[in-house]
Design a protein around this nucleic acid. Structure first.
Length: 423
RNA sequence: GGAGGGAUGCCUGAGUGGCCGAAAGGAACAGUUUGCUAAACUGUCGUACUGGCAACGGUACCGAGGGUUCGAAUCCCUCUUCCUCCGCCA
């Protein structure tokens, strides 16, 4: 959520930045300014009336104490009409505040300066390309056939016990999952991130805090009896650890990492591109979350991007880095890098990580601030990134490392898997 | 699941209808003193909205939301959460 004051004072700039996203409802900006104007007026009137009411109440108290009962009764009588106005105004205020809020949450974050204008994935900017595509033998298979051939991931079995998109990992497949999780967590710890283990279900307030609610309600599994949501990413619980918190400037930057399963309903997405591991309802991911000083967030974004790339390099995967164009970025992001690995068997790029700077968009809603040297509280900036999401990494490893007599395990993983080949 | 007791500022903790945005102590920060450390002394020490160039004001907030009242941290209702005891249990 953008800050109203900023919108009010930078209307032109806001509109200009939104156009980078190809945002379809620029009129929302003026609506917000109008609601804000209304809100402040109502607030002022209400405050004035409340001041009068407070004064009268004080007066009554004083008169009563001095035994001047009749005069007190007189003042009491006068307050009646004021009381009605106060009630009316505070109702009005609540309404206009709700309107303002509803409009504000519909406004996406403003793209950063470097974000290219555009509305489709084709307009994303390829920042860099690393490594070489794997050279596969003639009988190379896509991963969903490899998993069946070596009996390491069973999609049908998952369908039986739960439904489509809930695979069962078996034997070396399960072991590979655990190896990757440990590898990612170890590397993150080495890079200075603190490992956290967080709940996999969150309450409504947390959903609001990171922006999944109210909009993307349909993306999350919802336990209605308890009104809890299964997390779509560790970003939600980890970032919400800092909801309603005022940090000391010295506490920054905060670097957290967490492994969690992620649950996504992904309603209505079935087809060729979501086969096998490409898109699941439940998958594993190691996430990075940082809370940083506003002056440092873009620098941090570069560092996080470099860190994620170092993982891909260690795994020996051919990958590229994209800077998403305005229209392809998530609603809350100010700038996003996507990392995509090449799937030689599917002959296409698979998104395995997304690293974003949210600037103050999340922290404004989270009320996550820090107190600077001057004693002034300011909104911190948040960033997060996947490091990494497992399924597509597994898909890429299986496909790119396949040989005619089995699948090789990347060198760095062997000490975690305890085997160097799946056959 | 049953019974009872709590939730106040960074922390401890006072406050049972007006003089309370809130005592006191501690912590922290700044200054004075000081050979150094410590101590002592003085001051600062919640958040948000809002008016004002500013000085300085107004309003709201004592777990959350409603209610009673001229007036609520204080009384009533609902919810959340913590603690103690009992029951159950990986």
């Amino acid at each position: 959520m953008l800050q109203v004051n900023y919108i009010r004072e930078n209307r032109e700039k806001v509109l200009e930045r939104l156009s980078v996203r190809n945002f379809k409802q620029p009129e929302l900006v003026d609506e917000i300014i109008k609601f804000d104007e209304e809100r402040r007026q109502t607030q002022t009137s209400l405050d004035n009336l409340s001041a009068i009411a407070n004064a009268s109440a004080k007066q009554v108290g004083e008169l009563m104490r001095n035994g001047k009962k009749e005069e007190a009764e007189l003042v009491k009588a006068e307050t009646a009409s004021n009381k009605e106005s106060i009630k009316k105004l505070s109702d009005e205020l609540a309404v206009v505040e709700l309107h303002l809020y509803n409009a504000l949450v519909q406004l996406p974050n403003l793209p950063g300066e470097q974000v290219p204008t555009g509305s489709t994935p084709e307009e994303n900017e390829v920042v860099s390309l690393h490594g070489e595509p794997a050279q596969l033998h003639e009988k190379a298979l896509p991963h969903w056939e490899l998993t069946a051939k070596y009996d390491i991931i069973d999609f049908e079995l998952g369908t039986k016990i739960t439904g489509a998109g809930f695979p069962v990992y078996k034997g070396k497949g399960a072991r590979l999952q655990r190896a990757l999780i440990n590898f990612f967590l170890d590397r993150a710890t080495e890079a200075g991130y603190k490992e956290m283990q967080v709940p996999l279900m969150v309450n409504e307030a947390s959903g609001f805090g990171t922006g999944q609610l109210p909009d993307k309600e349909g993306q999350m599994y919802h336990s209605t009896v308890d009104n809890l949501y299964l997390i779509p990413t560790a970003e939600v619980p980890v970032t919400n650890l800092y909801r309603d918190v005022i940090l000391k400037e010295d506490d920054l930057p905060i670097k957290n990492t967490a492994y969690t399963p992620c649950f996504r309903r992904e309603a209505g997405s079935y087809g060729a591109h979501v086969r096998g591991l490409n898109r699941l309802h439940q998958f594993d991911k190691v996430e990075l979350v940082q809370v940083v000083h506003p002056d440092k967030s873009y620098e941090t974004l570069e560092q996080m991007s470099a860190y994620v790339q170092s993982l891909l390099q260690e795994l020996g995967l051919h990958y590229r880095v994209l800077r998403l164009c305005g229209g392809d970025m998530g609603f809350v992001a100010a700038m996003t890098y996507d990392m995509e690995v090449w799937s030689a068997a599917q002959q296409r790029w698979l998104e395995v990580s997304s690293v974003s700077n949210f600037e103050a968009y999340q922290t404004n809603r989270l009320k996550l601030r820090y107190k600077g040297a001057t004693g002034k509280t300011q909104l911190a900036h948040t960033l997060n990134g996947s490091a990494l999401a497992l399924p597509r990494i597994v898909a890429a490893i299986l496909e790119n490392y396949q040989t005619e007599d089995g699948i090789k395990i990347p060198e760095v993983l062997v000490k975690y898997t305890g085997f160097d080949k799946i056959d």
